[in-house]
Amino acid sequence: MSARRERLLRAWRRFWRPPRRLRTTPAGRTYLVLTVGVGLGALNTGNNLLYLVLGLQLSLVVVSGILSELCVRRVQIRRLLPGSPRARTPFHLAWGLRLPRGQAFALSVREVHPLLGSAVGQLAWLPSGEEVVVRAVATAHRRGPMQLHAVRVSTRFPFGLFEKSRDLELPGELLVLPGRMPARAEPPSPTSGLGLEQRSLRGPDGGGDLAQLRELRDGEDARRIHWRKSAQLGTLLRVERDAQPQPRIVLQLDDRAPAEALDVTCEELAARAELLLARGAEVGLESAGGVSVKPGTGAFHTQAILRALARAGHPGKAG
């Protein structure tokens, strides 16, 4: 299909997309039943005053549509995703709402997503010109990337009879990290299927105490030069330190396992990685599916490993 035709198709689909969704609230349903009842009564009896009441009721429905449209029409929104949400742990979804002019009342915000749709942020009043952040508590039951397409802004204003919703297209991705679980004290055995670990000790050029100074040889790392002593003696001296006891561990992940089992594995590896990193070890990650995180330490590295574990088994962007 040519790009032009694709564009045209997209435009055509966008044209036919319902601009608003309308849901009747329980009170609204009763109201509609009453309206139908009054309408039938008016037709039945020809009583003009019933026609007048019916006119008022129908007119209120129309007015409800107009006023609610004024509330949701100009709302601008930006998504404020949480940094590192974990599976099965409640986290905050947040949206920044702004209205260039006018004001909106009784707003509720949610993601248009089957798993996050139940997390609803509510706002009584959105004044014009200032951004108001709305939060909702959500829980993801599984790790992995969630593709977000749109945010739904709804209002029950003015009468609470209908809930009018507007979907604002806002592509994004929420990466849910593996859920927390207690890490095992001992590394799993190579046959456990939970992941293999490679352990290595560092050489004499480690990060321990100062052992000796010697002349720098060709090809050696200039960052090891002890500049003060080199300046005193007039020759380049390099530092040699004792080897450190911290291990360098590369976690092995079998990401060809079935989804449920892979989730458990990832959570266990994540727990292990966090434990090891907390103890000062350098931790890396490798998998058969091509995931590779070089060993390292620190908070950013922890995040890198967790993100890689979150994406394991999911096609698309690698960690």
């Binding site: 009342f105 009784a106 706002l123 009584a124 009043w125 204003f157």
Partner: peptide
Amino acid sequence: LSVVAEVPGGPLP
């Protein structure tokens, strides 16, 4: 007024 007052989030207008 009732619909606005029933919304739990944020300050009331």
